[in-house]
């Protein structure tokens, strides 16, 4: 049976570390499929001006295509060139919730992320995305240091 790994990217070096680790793990497992995911942080409960609302659909399309082009597509290509099979997903939402939702949809076996160096006050109080993911996920999560 094929093992499916979800790899969370953040467009930074930490995402690259998660990707490297996921590729190595996939080679060890053998029959493995990778899904690279980039989440655009977004809340349906934020406040916007009327003009921002009117342009929202357009901006969303732009955000998705930019994320696909600059982050997800290069990652998929890198994995494929290494002889592994990979697909990419871009979605808006809360990073932890969206990663878990995608893992469920894809019937994945594991989520791999890297710890980012989030040090802001709100992150300390409410926990960063990685901490939230670890606390809420119902499947194994590997956090690359």
């Amino acid at each position: 049976m094929t093992t499916k790994l979800i790899i969370g990217l953040d467009g930074l070096s930490s995402g690259e570390r998660a990707l490297d680790y996921g590729c190595n793990l996939a080679r060890l497992i053998g029959d493995c499929e990778l899904v690279v995911v980039y989440i655009i942080e977004w809340s349906p409960y934020s406040f916007q001006t009327p003009e921002e609302n009117a342009e929202r659909h357009k901006r969303r399309e732009e955000e998705i295509s930019t994320a696909k082009e600059r982050i997800v597509a290069p990652a998929v290509e890198r994995i494929s060139s290494g002889g592994l099979s990979a697909t990419g997903v871009v979605r808006h939402g809360n990073v932890a919730d969206a990663l878990i939702a995608i893992a469920k949809e894809q019937k994945a076996d594991q989520i791999i992320v890297a710890r980012s160096r989030e040090r802001s006050l709100s992150k300390r109080i409410f926990g960063g995305s990685t901490a939230n993911l670890v606390m809420e996920a119902s499947l194994p999560v590997t956090v690359v240091g």
Binding site: N53, R56, R91, H92, G93
Partner: peptide
């Protein structure tokens, strides 16, 4: 959930209320 990132009902209401 696939519409995440679009203007939500909450946002439309909040924007109108602030007016």
């Amino acid at each position: 959930p696939n519409d995440a990132g679009e203007v939500s009902h909450f946002q439309a209401l909040a924007t109108a209320l602030s007016g």
